[in-house]
Simulated assay, not measured.
Amino acid sequence: MRQQVDALGIKGSILVIKNGKIMLNYALGNNTDTSYLINSVQKSMTAAIIMRLVQEGKLSLQDKLSKFYPQISGAQKVKIKNLLAMTAGLDLKPGAKLGRKHFVSDSDNIQHDAAKTIFEPDLLNKWHYSSLNYVYLCGIMSKVTGQSYEQLFRDTYIKPLKLRQTEFLWSKPGKIISSHLVPGMIYRQGRYDVVKHKVALRGARNELGAGSIVMSNHDLAKVIRYLLSGSLLTQKSRKLLYQSGPPAYYNGGFYNNIKLKTKTANGAGEGYYTFMRSTNNAKTIVIIQSNKTREGEFNQLKSQINQIMLELLGRKADSANIVG
């Protein structure tokens, strides 16, 4: 297994847990407690906070987006469940980007996004991936609770799980240093260029619940177990949250493989990669993170790590495909 992982050529941190026991825990170029920007893997955590509010009766999967943001085009037709499953038919106008160039506040960013959002009726209830869906979920949970997304995240994950290498990218320098974050790098023209912190920070602010958290492998594994087999959600809530269908079998921040009973999440951006594979019961988990990336290699690595997960499960490479 280690030979297969090393063959990927990834410089970063590797954690493999099989049947609840650590099989591999090592690092190449960094340390096992190094933290990385997890990018889209964060969506699974955002989705679970929403589902917890549903579980508590403070929100319904059938609630319309218009209840919270009536100014958004098509909001009267889009439901919470659509946002979670990326089937809302929402996107930004051509050429537009999430958030403002200069950050003012989360609510200001969301209002700015709302003015740039278009609704495509033909895409309603059809798969169309956009982080915009999860930015709106952050705004909705804040409106329902009166708390910021950051506070909700800290109260849901960081404090109760005693996460040691987990922080928001915009946290104070001392907290970032304590999280053991390494800078993201992108290989260009024969060398690795460091992504400037202010550039990464702008992206983190603009992708509030979809790319603003840094985590170590162990912290991420702890949260994945909490999501899939812990006390955060009931079995009924998990079943509703991860109910999904073709083509992507995506819901609740995960690509859900019904046949293999696995969940997949990937993150890429600002010079970081995060690859997470887990069984539905979180007893077997693969987490590989890196801060050295190359343009054009992400999909290839994703596919290779899918095959590693298949072999870990004792399945032949051609017996099934892991989506995501």
Rank of each mutant, 00 (worst) to 15 (best):
Q76S: 15
Q76L: 14
Q76F: 09
K77A: 11
K77N: 15
K77S: 14
V78T: 14
K79T: 15
K79E: 15
K79C: 14
I80G: 02
I80T: 09
I80F: 07
K81N: 14
K81S: 15
N82E: 01
L83D: 05
L83Q: 04
L84C: 12
L84S: 05
L84H: 02
A85N: 11
A85L: 09
T87A: 06
T87F: 04
A88W: 04
A88T: 04
G89Y: 00
G89W: 00
G89K: 03
G89R: 07
G89L: 02
L90P: 08
L90I: 00
D91W: 03
D91S: 02
L92F: 04
P94T: 03
G95T: 02
A96P: 08
A96S: 10
K97Y: 11
K97A: 10
K97E: 12
L98K: 03
L98T: 01
L98P: 01
L98H: 04
G99T: 01
G99W: 06
G99N: 09
R100K: 07
R100L: 12
K101A: 12
K101V: 08
H102N: 12
F103P: 14
F103C: 03
V104K: 15
V104S: 12
S105M: 10
S105Y: 02
D106N: 14
D106R: 11
D108R: 15
D108S: 15
N109V: 11
I110V: 06
I110K: 06
I110Q: 04
I110T: 02
I110A: 08
Q111M: 14
Q111H: 15
Q111D: 14
Q111N: 14
H112Y: 15
H112R: 14
D113M: 08
D113E: 10
A114V: 01
A114E: 00
A115N: 09
A115M: 13
K116L: 11
T117Q: 01
T117S: 00
T117N: 00
I118M: 02
E120G: 02
E120I: 09
E120R: 15
P121H: 06
P121L: 11
P121A: 07
P121W: 08
P121I: 09
D122Y: 12
D122R: 13
